[in-house]
């Protein structure tokens, strides 16, 4: 099977101007992936499915990933010419900038007829708040139907073109997207019999304010 770079070049020849970026994977698995733009995503997916050399007929796995905004500290070395005319000095300058976060949907594609894979596609949203839509690949692979619903439910990614985009795991009136990294779970740790670690910290907020020593003994006995 061709490498991701070869695949990208072939896709660029077929779809000139398509937004395609290779994401290299440094781990020993060496499963590199391809970020595709929204505009031609469905066409590219259809091509991957029908191309005789690839025939990626099975979309095995659809995953949502949340990448929150993060502050990046960059250190750049700037050469400052010495005003006195001496040798130029190299000064390290640190700058902080906010790298905007995004939600990502990862598709693992395999070919059952040609027995190869995986080819990994990634779709990214503009940000995490108001531009959260990506094109749905359910029209191309039926197996995306429930899995995209799950990503919508747990991450809040809007799939345009999905035939039936409803919550699938949580109830309909639920308002949060619990798999996002900044989700705050409801606090119902009123009482924990053997708290420790994180649970201890959550349970302690519910403990009554520490009374005087004899009263505390009484409470313990009750």
């Amino acid at each position: 099977m061709e490498t991701v770079e070869q695949l990208r070049d072939r896709l660029l020849a077929r779809f000139p101007g398509a937004a395609l970026t290779v994401v290299t994977n440094p781990s020993p698995s060496a499963q590199h992936s391809l970020v595709i733009g929204h505009a031609q995503a469905v066409e590219i997916a259809t091509f991957l499915r029908d191309d005789p050399a690839l025939r990626l007929d099975q979309c095995s796995n659809v995953t949502g990933v949340d990448w929150p905004d993060k502050e990046v500290t960059e250190t750049t070395k700037v050469t400052v010419p010495d005003p006195a005319g001496g040798p130029a000095k190299v000064v390290a300058q640190t700058s902080k900038r906010l790298e905007p976060g995004y939600l990502e949907v990862v598709y693992h594609l395999y070919s059952i007829s040609l027995r190869h894979g995986p080819v990994i596609l990634r779709l990214r949203t503009g940000n995490r708040t108001d531009q959260v839509s990506v094109p749905s690949l359910t029209p191309v692979w039926r197996s995306c139907e429930f899995q995209e619903r799950e990503v919508y439910d747990l991450y809040g990614v809007q799939f345009t073109g999905h035939p039936d985009l409803r919550r699938i795991l949580m109830w309909d009136g639920f308002q949060d997207h619990p798999m996002r990294r900044d989700y705050v779970e409801p606090d119902d740790y009123q009482w924990e019999p053997t708290p420790h670690g994180e649970v201890m910290a959550k349970a302690k907020q519910h403990y009554p304010a520490a009374p005087a020593a004899p009263a505390a003994k009484e409470g313990g006995a009750a």
Binding site: Q190, W191, Y207, P208, G219, G220
Partner: peptide, 23 residues
């Protein structure tokens, strides 16, 4: 009932009251 974030109410006080934490 199913609420926006949790069950409402999240417990039934006639059946269950949090016991006093162990001292």
């Amino acid at each position: 009932e199913f609420g926006a974030h949790d069950l409402e109410p999240s417990q039934n006080p006639t059946v269950w009251q949090p016991p006093a934490p162990l001292v």
